[in-house]
């Protein structure tokens, strides 16, 4: 699919249409049995899969030029990387759950936007790189989030790596990097005239069981890792529902420490920063556990926020 359609006229000031918190347990793709994935299931994790179904309809209606995803499972230690090959395809097998995820991926990459993000990130003082190797195996985090949001794969994508700074530096330094990366993403979208949807590929609480049932989709065995973890997930989700991002940002370090939350990888903060930390309530499409982890599918629809802003002027 060409990525330079007429709607991607750089004289048009691009915008972010919506952002989705889009967790990536491979179980969700496995539960759906799409033709791209080899293992077959009897279903499972429907509450999360149905939540994604609502997002799919929304994205179809928004007609974005591109979906951008920040994935914790493309870990880079030197800089923030962007996929920069026009078309990537191959087999991606999850190293942790290979029995659930053996996915034949095929994706068109918006390399013009990817370039712009890298350039803007450098302007922000970050180290940024373009991944230009056509043999690169795209990680399952990127693929799961993108598949669950758009299984037709008919919208170009930009994949962004999770730089390991949260694990190397203090929380403040790491979050500062993600805020700069978000700002760079937003500027790149504006300058290239793209109408973009963002996806933060993060689970919330991330403590999980290290043994799975013989039948992985046996939902009688699926439950949250601990009550404390569940309560903290609910606290975080409630702040999202209230649009109280100030408090959300304030409790993130404690949330990460207490629940091993995957948002530590930076995807959520990247997305919120790109959207300018919107104070609108997030729409919660669904919450569910996967092998004990807490996952929420949430949406920030900036188009309705803009309409509301115009009406109140």
């Amino acid at each position: 699919m060409p990525v330079n359609s007429s709607s991607q006229d750089s004289s048009f000031r691009g915008e972010i249409l919506a952002g989705f918190l889009a967790p990536h347990p491979p179980h969700l793709v496995y539960g759906e049995n799409p033709p791209q994935n080899k293992p077959r299931s009897q279903g499972g994790w429907e509450n999360l899969r149905w939540a994604y179904q609502q997002c799919r309809e929304k994205i179809k209606a928004l007609k974005p030029d591109v979906i951008l995803v920040h994935s914790p499972h493309w870990q880079t230690v030197v800089g923030h990387h962007v996929l920069h090959v026009p078309h990537l395809s191959g087999l991606s097998v999850d190293p942790i759950f290979p029995h659930l995820f053996q996915y034949e991926f095929s994706m068109d990459v918006d390399v013009e936007l990817a370039s712009a993000i890298a350039e803007e990130a450098i302007q922000e003082g970050l180290l940024a790189k373009k991944m230009t190797n056509p043999q690169f195996r795209v990680d399952y985090g990127t693929i799961v989030s993108l598949h669950m949001l758009n299984p037709d794969w008919d919208i170009p994508v930009v994949g962004i790596s999770a730089n390991n700074s949260p694990y190397y530096f203090s929380h403040d330094v790491a979050q500062d990097q993600m805020i700069k990366l978000g700002r760079a993403t937003q500027k790149a979208i504006e300058k290239t005239g793209r109408r973009a949807v963002l996806a933060a590929s993060n689970t919330l609480s991330h403590l999980h069981f290290d043994r799975e049932p013989d039948c992985p989709e046996d939902m009688s065995q699926e439950h949250v890792f601990s009550h404390a973890q569940y309560l903290y997930d609910m606290r975080v989700i409630e702040l999202m529902r209230q649009g109280n991002l100030d408090e959300l940002m304030a409790i993130l370090p404690d949330f990460m420490e207490k629940t091993f939350a995957e948002v530590k990888a930076g995807s959520l903060v990247w997305m919120l920063a790109a959207m300018g930390f919107p104070t609108m309530p997030a729409q919660i499409h669904g919450y569910g556990t996967v092998i004990g982890t807490g996952n929420v599918v949430a949406e920030w629809d900036l188009t309705t926020a803009r309409v509301a802003e115009v009406l109140t002027r």
Binding site: K129, F136, D210
Partner: peptide, 26 residues
């Protein structure tokens, strides 16, 4: 080779293919 569901062991009698490092892909 990091695993979380216990200890993993390679049982493919002949692993083959192309590998690109996720950080140093260049």
């Amino acid at each position: 080779w990091i695993s979380v569901l216990g200890h993993s062991f390679q049982l493919d009698p002949n692993p083959s293919g192309i590998h690109v490092d996720e950080n140093w892909h260049e």
